[in-house]
Amino acid sequence: MIEAKNVSKSFDGFSALDNISCVIPDGCIYGLVGTNGAGKSTLLRLLTGVYRQDSGEVLYDGLQVYENPIVKKDIAYVPDELYFLPGANMNRMARLYSSVHPGFDNDRFIQLAEDLRLDRKKNIATFSKGMKRQAAIILALACKPKYMFFDETFDGLDPVMRNIIKAIICQDVEERKAVAVITSHSLRELEDTCDQLALLHRGGLVLESDITKLKTNLFKIQTAFLDEYDRNRFEGTDILHFSKRGSVSNIIVRGDKSDIIEHFNALHPVILDILPLTLEEVFTYEVEALGYDFSAIFEREVE
């Protein structure tokens, strides 16, 4: 189990992360999403003990991670910008990894490279961007880590490869109660893979929740009335977003589905359609409520 307790980090007076707390249980695939510059990568570097936090604690089953080899031997981290030794092939990298990770499983490394049809003797510098990612993932998985961190790792893979890698990670999580923390912008992807999701914005944790729960308390409603009305008609409901054109409104509401339906039906609308939100829409409306809203760009163009 990974626990971050009131973790803060700033760089030259710029507060990158402010008082973040989260718990990542064993056997969990944890999705980390956020706006550009929200602090996702910084959080990963703190969780993996690459950075030292200014305040707060990062604990693995109660042990500090920073400069602690006992904890770090169980961690594999595939960063956003990959590093390979100059001119090295995968075999050379495997030797480096096995010297650092006592659990490095050379058979698994060879098997995975064969499965993904990567040439272990070829200079990695000659690999394509996606193949470099694959190489880094294989090396990380061969360490048989208890804790895996992937920083936008899947965004550069083709759909076939993405599914294969995801399946391998899911197996590890299932068999060894491993933990995977994944940042991505492809919410559609996280939707099927992760069981927990955290949303970061401007260095703060906006929400941390079960994926299924996230998707079941926000709804997209289309409604219309024949008489004149405005947002005030829906007083008593938790509205995140309201837009109206003519007599038709599109509303994003938070709450229990049956309560919402009951509340709206009592107003006798001519139309009432309720749809659950996709994760991408949840993300959009949650950060919009925090001022991350760029709709003005379109209004300016359309007018």
Binding site: A224, L226, G246, V248, V270, F298, E301
Partner: peptide, 21 residues
Amino acid sequence: FILLGILKAGDKLPSVRQLSA
């Protein structure tokens, strides 16, 4: 919308550009 009387004969629909955005 038309069947329910929300849009009536002569009403203008939003433009392609507006809807697209």
